[in-house]
Measured scan of single mutants.
Amino acid sequence: DETGKFLVLALYDYQEKSPREVTAKKGDILTLLNSTNKDWWKVEVNGRQGFVPAAYVKFL
């Protein structure tokens, strides 16, 4: 159920650099879980949760 969740689009490829991050490919649609940090947003992609740089994604 996606009610109340926001989707964001990956603008660039991002390769995770730590276990707390997730890899995303340009064009991926990610479920935004938390955007309270202006630099790192928590997302879910391909069943995995983790952080990506906020500058790499935008709201749909």
Rank of each mutant, 00 (worst) to 15 (best):
T36Q: 11
L33E: 01
T23M: 03
G50E: 01
S35F: 12
E21R: 03
L30N: 00
L9P: 00
R48N: 06
A55G: 11
G4S: 12
V22F: 10
F59R: 08
A24Q: 08
Q15S: 11
E16C: 13
F51Q: 01
K25R: 12
E16M: 12
W41Q: 01
I29G: 01
R20V: 11
L32S: 01
E16Y: 03
G50V: 05
A10F: 13
A54C: 10
V43Q: 00
R48F: 07
K42W: 15
V22N: 02
E21A: 05
V52P: 01
S35R: 11
T23S: 15
D28L: 07
Y14T: 02
L11A: 03
G50L: 05
V45L: 14
K38W: 07
A24Y: 11
D28S: 06
S35E: 06
N46I: 04
S35G: 10
A24P: 02
V52F: 15
D1I: 14
G50H: 04
F59A: 11
Q15L: 13
Y12E: 09
V22T: 04
F6P: 10
G50W: 06
L60Q: 06
S18I: 04
A55Y: 09
N46S: 07
E44K: 03
L60V: 11
A10M: 15
G50K: 02
P19K: 09
L33N: 00
W40H: 01
R48Y: 07
L9E: 12
L9T: 07
V22A: 02
G47F: 05
W40K: 00
N46T: 03
F6I: 15
R20C: 15
Q49F: 07
V43Y: 01
E21G: 13
D39S: 09
V43K: 00
K25I: 07
G47D: 04
P19E: 11
D39I: 13
S35N: 12
G4M: 13
E44M: 08
T31R: 12
K5T: 11
G50Y: 06
L32A: 02
L60M: 12
T31F: 11
D1P: 14
V57C: 09
K42I: 14
A24L: 15
G4R: 13
F59V: 14
S35L: 07
G27N: 05
T31M: 12
L33Q: 01
